[in-house]
């Protein structure tokens, strides 16, 4: 006997994400979900971003890591409220899910926040699948990774709204073909803004924060 089901396996996450989205909209909080592979420089980018946009934009951060609070400790120095989520408490997960964000957001004073930045777990596969209730998704790629990462992880680069190509200060020391990387992003997501920058030196950084500020002001 065949019993029809016809349900999305990630139904529960998608419902929770919609609930988060409604809450954030109600509170006037703009939410971005920043994803990348481990070591691309997400935390350094966020440190500089916080220093650049605060206090003008009241910002809070949810940081996901499999374990440790190292990233949260670094980001808290900016003065932004930071909630650390360690997924080993949720089964060593490889991504943040919507219920984790709901729980973390409940620890924040959403009435006093304009922008909530979610630093996802370093992973280019799983986080692409999980809607958190965010407004925008951003992917970070660094020039110490392969130029073909976008075509190897197409879903991630497809679902994101902008891409950051980080660590360009290292280009003189590498055989990295930057144009090839940008072309690779364009194949997957032709009209996506790509911000080439060094979060360490600040080179190219303003284009990113200008874009982010514009997105937040247009919310």
């Amino acid at each position: 006997m065949e019993i029809k089901v016809v349900r999305k396996v990630l139904d529960a996450n998608e419902k929770m994400a919609e609930q988060n989205r409604a809450l954030f909209k109600d509170k006037g909080v703009f939410v971005i979900n920043v994803m990348s592979s481990p070591g691309s420089g997400k935390t350094t980018i966020l440190e500089r971003t916080l220093n650049n946009i605060m206090p003008g934009i009241k910002t809070a951060v949810i940081v996901g890591d499999v374990s440790t609070t190292h990233d949260a400790d670094r980001l808290a120095k900016s003065g932004a409220p930071v909630v650390q989520v360690n997924t080993d408490a949720f089964g060593g997960d490889c991504h943040l899910a919507a219920h984790v964000i709901e729980n973390a957001a409940s620890q924040l004073d959403l009435d006093n926040i304009d922008l909530l930045i979610v630093e996802n777990i370093g992973n280019l596969v799983c986080p692409a699948e999980f809607d958190l209730g965010e407004n925008l998704k951003v992917v970070v790629l660094s020039v110490t990774e392969g130029e073909d990462k976008p075509v190897k992880y197409p879903l991630m680069f497809r679902v994101c709204d902008s891409a950051i190509l980080n660590k360009i200060d290292l280009l003189p020391y590498l055989d990295y073909e930057k144009d090839l990387a940008v072309e690779s992003i364009r194949k997957i997501h032709p009209d996506m803004p790509v911000f080439e920058m060094s979060a360490k030196t600040g080179d190219g950084f303003d284009a990113w924060t200008d874009w982010l500020k514009r997105c937040v002001s247009e919310k």
Binding site: L155, R186, K187, P190
Partner: peptide
């Protein structure tokens, strides 16, 4: 891995299939 239209070379396409993760029946 390319979402550039092979017919008109345009870059404005929507994914219509390939993201399914569905239980159909038991």
């Amino acid at each position: 891995a390319s979402f550039i239209c092979p017919k008109c070379n345009g870059g404005n396409a929507d994914i219509t299939a390939g993201r399914e993760l569905d239980i159909v029946s038991i």
